[in-house]
Design a protein around this nucleic acid. Structure first.
Length: 121
RNA sequence: AGAGUCGGCUGAGCAGUCGCUGUUUUAUCGCAAGAUAGAAUGGAGGAAAGUCCGGGCUCCACUGGGCAGGGUGCCAGGUAACGCCUGGGAGGUGUAAACCUACGGAAAGUGCCACAGAAAAUAUACCGCCAUCGUCUUGUAAAAGACGAGGGUAAGGGUGAAAAGGUGCGGUAAGAGCGCACCGCGCAACUGGUAACAGGGGCGGCAUGGUAAACCCCACCCGGAGCAAGAUCAAAUAGAGGAAUAUACGCGUGGCCCGCGCGGUUCCUGGGUAGAUUGCUUGAGCUGCAAGGUGACUUGCAGCCUAGAUGAAUGGCUGCUCUCGACAGAACCCGGCUUAUAGGCCGACUUUUUCU
């Protein structure tokens, strides 16, 4: 068994507007009170993630940053449970008051759910 | 020791580990651009915030001009500039240290001033006060009283936020700057001060209610848009440029008017949207020392380089310590202002009590 590399290089991120558009156009959804996640199959072996934290929902820049970091960190740790899918994470209002631990638990469920959903489609 | 005023500083720390990102460097691959791996080193704030002012920078408009519009408003200085800062003056608050002030003009004009009140800016006579005249009553008379008439009065009452200088003495029929003293106000000069202004004396019997964050007047200042500015490289697709011609109409140019430009047609040339790169951090920079200045600040010398992301980094986990951690996240860059903020530290000063 080879040693796993838990890094988070740019190739694991969604960057271009077109890539985001692709996910939004035909997604598999997974929602709870903190997040809405959208996902589609991609042509890559590795999963990719993009963040869409609306200023309208999370007003303070500090809180936005905290949520983004939590999502990125969770994705970094869990990346090897997923295959080649593109994911966009949208924050909901309740994410503002939640503790980092609550967010982490929620996200871990989401990743697994999306993998199984995408495998069936 | 208590209470308080002002100014400044700080904004949890340490270790391990897994990540992100800039720079430098080494190795490998590659013609190159670059990619991958390793190492070293840097990586949010005092407000990074609100976007309220002022600049730099960039493009557009520059032939100016007029009319609008906006801003500022005691004086002097500082500054790239400011609505900021410093010093000073005036007024106000506080025992004091200190703090606060949208602090030009109301005898250029216009408007507004509710209710109450007789009257609210051309002053006015409701009650009251005063003498005069007429009639009546009482009285021997002098005179007193009642009623009425046309007058004189702003001292008293009452209304009001405000009643046309205030207080006192004289004066008077009663009163009144009618006269005088003090205070206030105004005027011209003098003295001190760069000035705002202050000062003491003189003259004037007093004329000018408030409101200019009401219009307005006066003085001074202001072109527009913003890094998604702009520049470069550039798929797909023909919306772009130049020349000639036309100037009726439409559109644009800072809001309008002059003025100016563009749109039409013909011919010629090729172009620059998605995306990428750049702009992007060496700057009115920071630190120290010296000099000048009451100070804001300026000058000189020496040293230093201190975030630069772009779906957007500066974090996660574990352990330990303490006073158990507030407000809060750079997005072109500076100077201010304003607002938010758990605590902790330092300095100067005021005042009260006790002790010496």
């Amino acid at each position: 068994m080879t040693e796993l590399n838990y890094s988070f290089p740019p190739k694991l991120r969604l960057k271009k507007a077109a890539e985001f558009k692709n996910v939004f156009s035909n997604p598999v959804k997974s929602t709870d009170r903190y997040f809405t996640l959208l996902a589609t199959q991609s042509d890559f072996d590795n999963p990719r993630v993009g963040l869409a934290i609306a200023k309208k929902i999370i007003r303070k820049a500090v809180h936005r940053n905290v949520i983004k970091r939590t999502i990125r960190e969770s994705f970094r740790i869990q990346q090897y449970t997923m295959t080649g899918i593109d994911i966009v994470v949208l924050a909901r209002k309740d994410a503002l008051g939640a503790s980092p631990d609550e967010l982490r638990l929620s996200l871990e469920k989401h990743w697994l759910k999306l993998v199984s959903k995408c495998a069936s489609c």
